[in-house]
């Protein structure tokens, strides 16, 4: 069985690259993520995790950020390029 092409950001494995399909939620948290450019089509790579597996260290486009798993779970990805 081939692994699913779709997953949420907290399920990504270190070194894996994927593209955002959509972000869950209509609260200001999803607005903030959108302001940062975390939206459909953006390329994300999981670079690593902090102790206890949280937060995640990510590459978004060409910048690096730390994001908690709880928030990462709202970001849905697909592992083949959208473009």
């Amino acid at each position: 069985m081939t692994p699913s092409n779709f997953c949420s950001l907290d399920q990504l494995r270190p070194g894996e690259i994927a593209w955002v399909t959509h972000v869950d939620g209509t609260d200001d948290l999803s607005q903030r993520l959108g302001d940062l450019g975390l939206q459909r089509g953006v390329e994300i790579e999981l670079l690593g995790r902090a102790p206890w597996g949280d937060p995640l260290r990510l590459r978004v486009g060409n910048w690096r950020l730390g994001l908690r798993r709880q928030e990462a779970a709202r970001i849905h990805l697909q592992k083949t390029s959208i473009h």
Binding site: D27, D28, L29, R32, L33, L36, P55, R57, W63, R64, L65, G66, L67, R68, E71
Partner: peptide, 11 residues
């Protein structure tokens, strides 16, 4: 209050 979004830019 609502939990703030933890976005930590790693410069």
């Amino acid at each position: 209050g609502p939990a703030p979004l933890f976005v930590l830019e790693l410069p």
